[in-house]
């Protein structure tokens, strides 16, 4: 496997969905490679170390249609690729169900790779991933199998496996039938159960629609 650096771009660091994605990818790759945590590092120092690797793989959650601000802090410090063939790839997981919600970020990452002269391995996107770290492992087994396949393909070819990327990115958009059903579930408060549960547990349910910045 080419000398690879994996970056965890989540503000949650080792405790979160992004870390689970990385671990499952590495299980498939079956070769250890260093993982560094953007939230713990100096952006300039971290970006400076990219020169020592053949491939940089960013894993991150989607924040407001793009990378978390802490990942942009690292990107701001990135220099052009240091040698021919140096590659960059991205794996993004979002709470929203549809992979299409990450299209704006995907388009940007393609531009970034071009601007900095990296070979672009592409951007694999998974929607509907907010609950992965809260669920038992079994509930996400199908997802984990695809992430392992992504890692396995990477070890074998140095690229992202097209089938795995496509499986992760489904659903790309919601069908009319799906969105109508989901809207019905939301209106019946069934779709909101995860939030209701957390608000109740934190004794904050009564305040769920509070507008604190106009109320004081």
């Amino acid at each position: 496997m080419r000398k690879t650096l994996i970056l965890n771009g989540s503000p949650h660091g080792k405790k979160g969905n992004t870390e689970i994605f990385i671990r499952k990818f590495l299980e498939g790759a079956k070769e250890p490679c260093p993982v560094r945590y953007v939230v713990q590092e100096d952006p300039a120092e971290l970006a400076g170390d990219f020169a020592n690797y053949d491939v940089i793989l960013f894993f991150m959650p989607l924040y407001v249609h793009a990378m978390p601000g802490i990942v942009m802090e690292v990107i701001e410090q990135m220099q052009p690729a240091q040698r021919a063939g140096q590659s960059i790839g991205f794996v993004v997981q979002s709470g929203f169900l549809e992979a299409a919600q990450s299209d704006y970020l995907k388009a940007y990452f393609a531009m970034l790779a071009k601007r900095l002269g990296y070979v672009d391995l592409g951007c694999a996107v998974r929607g509907g991933a907010a609950g992965v770290c809260m669920q038992p492992e079994k509930a996400s087994e199908a997802l984990f199998a695809v992430l392992r396949k992504l890692g396995e393909g990477y070890r074998e070819t140095g690229a992202f496996d097209g089938e795995a990327v496509s499986a992760l990115g489904t659903p790309y958009r919601l069908t009319q039938k799906e969105s109508r059903l989901l809207e019905r579930l939301h209106r019946l408060k069934i779709g909101d159960l995860m939030w209701t549960f957390m608000l109740l547990r934190n004794k904050a349910f009564r305040l769920r629609r509070a507008r604190p910045y106009t109320e004081e």
Binding site: A66, G69, M72, I75, E76, H186, R208
Partner: peptide, 27 residues
Amino acid sequence: VKGFVSARLKNLLDRMIALFLPYITYR
């Protein structure tokens, strides 16, 4: 910066979620 909103502005945009509800509509 680097063809995108700066990290400073992105951090502000990320923090705007306080102005929205967690609930999701599909309408």
